[in-house]
Design a protein around this nucleic acid. Structure first.
Lengths: 230, 230
DNA sequence: CGTAGTCTTGACAAATATCAAGGCCCGTGG
DNA sequence: CCACGGGCCTTGATATTTGTCAAGACTACG
């Protein structure tokens, strides 16, 4: 019997592919019942907004696949990408504090997200203290990420920043594959121009340390780690 | 009857000068009793460490006066200041998650802090849900600050960054007075060299938009806001 | 007094931004 | 089907900014 595709009901949440790493991983079955029928699945289409900065925020989102960039703007029109959300990351936590969304959340790579109304989160929060801890961990993880972007991705030469970005995005094990980003987005993450990002990437490619195909980047992590020290 | 100066007991917490804005502002008197005798007052001496990155973290700190910089280091020896804590700010929240401290916390301007052992925080947390909310707010505020440093203080020319830094540090009302920072620290906040920070500050001084005396900076906020747009 | 550290300034080198052009891919509409 | 336009990436030439190195002034401190 087919279910409505746009909704994730109780059994779907139990079967969630990222259940172990999800926000609700610590919840008991009885708690999950609260969620029944309240969580909407959102297809992530590249270029579309998941939400926009300044909007009143009534939901938190869990990314279950794909990539979302969080963008902030300066009064003069400049912008910076301040975070990248991937599978199992949580977006829009500021909603739980009744604050408006702080960023534009824009899809970079197609995937799927779940929309969790804050009332549901509040309800679960009241029942289950494990969720507190998990929420705190999410905040901390976002903060730690933001600070790493300051120290690693906004410091040093453009080449060093690009290297650190690739290292940060790529798998630690395996042959270091990383998702694909446009040079424009790389520039916005690193605080350099598109051209500088392009030149740095081209240089690494010529040196054989980095490659790119339709699926994404690959890199020689060890060799790159070597080059970021000097 | 004098009390031991190094300790802040119950009555001191009630009389705390930052009680309204402190972490414990939402607590009832009965809750505060838990705190009795467990909170240590720490004098903040410029150049000294409040804690160091990597240390196992057993306490959270509340700043009650003075300034503390949070510093992170890159493997190559470079460093960035990723946050500035002032009166009523909370430091070392990662301790509540049993994580080691993420920064070196170094005093910039003399003042006073309170050391709160995590056991105390846990105890209060179990009793009083208002504290959850307050902790979340603290995480969010730190995150939001970090992201602002990315977009405002790590983007654009050195002059623009200095202007945004001064605007961010200075009082919104009044004649825009801001605490004093060394050029070296300004550089480490902005991701530019000491010399670049110095030149930018000197230029703003010559233009009459910024001044400096023993107490700190002062500035013409409106004129500066004008110059940061172009 | 020296000494060490910071701030400032200058001269120069290096990195980056800016402007411009060409190639490539892809979707659209004639 | 093909021509066209719009993005995006790349590369080059040039201007601007920033980093680097060095020196002198000044302050704080023993």
């Amino acid at each position: 019997m087919p279910r409505k595709a746009a909704w994730c009901d109780l059994s779907d949440c139990f079967a969630c592919t990222i259940r172990d790493s999800a926000l609700f991983s610590g919840l008991r079955e009885a708690d999950l019942a609260v969620v029944h029928g309240a969580i909407e699945e959102i297809p992530l289409r590249p270029g579309h907004w998941l939400y926009r900065g300044g909007q009143s925020a009534d939901s938190v989102f869990t990314v279950r696949g794909g990539l979302v960039k969080l963008v902030q703007y300066l009064p003069n029109g400049d912008h910076r990408i301040v975070r990248i959300a991937r599978s199992s990351d949580v977006l829009g936590l500021e909603a739980t504090l009744r604050q408006p969304y702080q960023h534009d959340a824009i899809v970079v790579q197609a995937g799927l997200a779940c929309r969790i109304p804050i009332e549901v989160l509040d309800e679960l929060n009241a029942r289950n203290p494990a969720l507190h801890q998990e929420l705190m961990r999410r905040w901390q993880s976002a903060l730690s990420e933001a600070e790493a972007w300051l120290t690693e991705l906004s410091t040093g030469s453009a080449r060093h920043r690009v290297i650190r970005l690739v290292l940060r995005l790529s798998d630690e094990q395996g042959r270091g594959s990383a998702p694909l980003f446009s040079r424009k987005d790389m520039g916005a993450m690193l605080g350099v121009t598109t051209e500088s990002a392009s030149r740095a990437v081209a240089e690494l490619k010529r040196a054989g340390l980095l490659g790119e195909d339709a699926r994404g980047f690959w890199c020689d992590r060890e060799a790159l780690a070597q080059r970021v020290t000097d």
